[in-house]
Nucleic acid binder design. Structure first.
Lengths: 378, 378
DNA sequence: TTGAAAGCGCTAACAA
DNA sequence: TTGTTAGCGCTTTCAA
């Protein structure tokens, strides 16, 4: 039996642990979610029949009515299999890590939708992570795997990525699919038809009568950047046009790179009459720099970019761009990853359908036409 | 001993199970991650001592060297506790769902960083989800809980949110914290000092000599919008200034709402000399509309917005804005959620530190000053 | 100061 | 056609 002092201390300890316990009613505890055994009981079958019915085990030879009873019970109870129990048994957690750089890049919105669609279709859970986080926490990917939180990864690499973080994936033999990366060390990949996109953008300018066409590209040692530049040069060459060196830049894919590219072209002398910009953010940078420098787009310079986004409609002037099938990229990336996880065989998928599509806005115009809309007064 | 026929059948079965096994070398299998038993063996202790040492169980009375041995072994093996095993036992998974609208809103980048920081500090895993997804899949949150994938939620609600999806959280007694929502039905919340932010923006304009100041606000039945509008009116009143009705709009927080607000103000007649815009995207819309309509910012109209983002530096002209402590909001939201999950007591936190901070760019100017930088030619 | 063992929810091998 | 049961990796109670 406790003394009075002990009673007091015990009460005090309780009070410290629950400083506002009086505000919490005891029945506020969250009820236990329904379990497989509840479903089995409700359907009047054994737990194992319930499990095999819900998982559509082909080896289960049961009456159709029995199976239907199980499903009805599961629906009724809003049963969802506990992920931990299942994962412990199956050594797979039904979740994939999705590592993207720079989540606020406006063009990701559609990619994210596609990935979520693919996940919904295949009943897996996406775990989104910003690539920046790998800098603070280089073991993140390995930890995710070792903790059994992710079965595989979707990764969009960039120039500024900690490549070492991805090496460990190969070492640990974790399935991963790279998004729109033509880099050779991708184990598996799903890529867009960048070549067709750039060709479409370039031909658009040629169709408008432009002949002095420049190219704002990515860093020279980036595989995607080289591919896009080659596609530009090939399209020009197919028309019998040569590309002036001074009108081709390779500063990078970011907003500031686009600003710098246009600035340097201006400083170097005469401008081309039109520019293909290899990526969306750089094109926004070009637009911004043209405002700063008083270059009128599209009257004196037409600009078209690879990749579209909502921000393209918001810019000044609204940006003409080539819309790439990013939603499809996301969906296919998920299904490809699941296949790779299933059989361990690397795959390289190429998305040609739907094809790239030109979205005409205000930043391109026929060569030599004067602008139509209200000029900004000064 | 097996017969030849049995051998054959066994081989056939293997082939069926691994249809393209010849392409996969046998050692390509992913090695089993280290387990607690491996750590225990390496440290020469029992599995239970290892567990209690790693979890810093205060009831464990063990030699310091023993504990150190366990940690050394864990480090050596890169041990990470399997989440499924732990979760099965503890009924908590160490993950929180983070539901945000409109991931590509540029201002989220900093909020996301803060949330990830908070998660790293507390060793929990964020599961990001776009609110749009709740439309396709209204049971998402409940499923996440019933599957044992998330222990609680961080939610940023908006006008277009399926409120019903959140009701179920309360019904199911799932801990959740609302981000910067002053809405009354938030069980718990962490909010910024919007009032101070709006006051700072307004005073900035007043300090520049503006007296005819307008306000571009959110929808009238949005709690945050009302609060911001009241703060604006209070700051004006404190200076003895009245607010003209026609210079106050309540179209909403989106880009297009800002465009529409300015358009309607222009159509209605004389403009104020300065505008406080209650949110970032709407301010970008105001800037865009001013270009369309040939209104020179900041010469004829100064614009300042609540909330800053990288896009503010990219707009034309670069947007002067009030930087709110979004990173801190993210960090505190995580720690608050963990507290609520721990004791079930709702909390309402108010972030005043760091204080809102004015970021001067190009969209505000002293009343009556002509512009300094190179005008855009026409 | 340390260890043995039960049991979390599920799947699948095996038994009936 | 259906049921019983072992065991996935971990934490924690209880015993030593």
């Amino acid at each position: 039996m406790q003394t009075r002092a002990e009673d007091d201390e015990s009460i005090a300890a309780t009070a410290r642990a629950f400083p506002e316990a009086e505000q919490v009613s005891p029945d506020i505890r969250r009820p236990r979610p329904p379990q497989l055994r509840d479903v089995a009981r409700a359907a009047d079958v054994s737990i194992s029949v319930a499990s095999r019915a819900l998982n559509r085990d082909p080896n289960l030879r049961a009456r159709e009515t029995t199976i239907e009873r199980v499903f009805a019970a599961a629906r009724e109870l809003q049963y969802r299999a506990n992920a931990a129990g299942r994962s412990l048994r199956t050594r797979a957690v039904g979740a994939i890590g999705v590592i993207l750089p720079d989540v606020n890049n406006p063009f990701f919105s559609e990619l994210l939708s596609g990935i979520e669609e693919g996940c919904d279709e295949n009943d897996v859970m996406p775990l989104f992570g910003r690539a920046e986080r790998l800098n603070d926490n280089p073991h993140l990917l390995r930890n995710l795997v070792n903790e059994g939180r992710a079965d595989g990864f979707l990764i969009q690499p960039t120039d500024v990525f900690p490549a070492a973080a991805f090496r460990t994936l190969a070492v640990d033999r974790v399935s991963s699919v790279f998004l729109n990366s033509h880099s050779v060390d991708a184990q598996s990949s799903v890529v867009l038809d960048d070549r067709a996109g750039i060709a479409l953008a370039t031909r658009h300018l040629l169709d408008l009568g432009h002949r002095r066409v420049g190219f704002v590209g990515g860093l020279p040692d980036n595989d995607n950047a080289s591919l896009r530049r080659e596609a530009f040069e090939a399209t020009m060459a197919a028309m019998g046009l040569t590309v002036e060196r001074r009108w081709v830049t390779d500063r990078g894919f970011a907003f500031a790179d686009g600003q710098r590219a246009l600035g340097e072209m201006v400083d170097a002398g005469e401008l081309p009459s039109a520019l293909v910009v290899a990526t969306h953010n750089a094109a926004l940078g070009v637009l911004r720099e043209s405002l700063t420098r008083g270059i009128d787009i599209p009257t004196s310079l037409s600009v078209v970019s690879l990749h579209d986004s909502p921000a393209a409609a918001y810019s000044w002037p609204a940006l003409t761009s080539v819309r790439m099938p990013l939603r499809e990229l996301g969906r296919r990336a998920v299904s490809t990853l699941l296949q790779v996880m299933d059989d361990g065989i690397p795959r390289h998928e190429f998305i040609t359908d739907p094809a790239p599509h030109l979205v005409m806005r205000e930043s391109t115009r026929e060569r030599g036409l004067s602008r139509l809309h209200t000029p900004r007064r000064d």
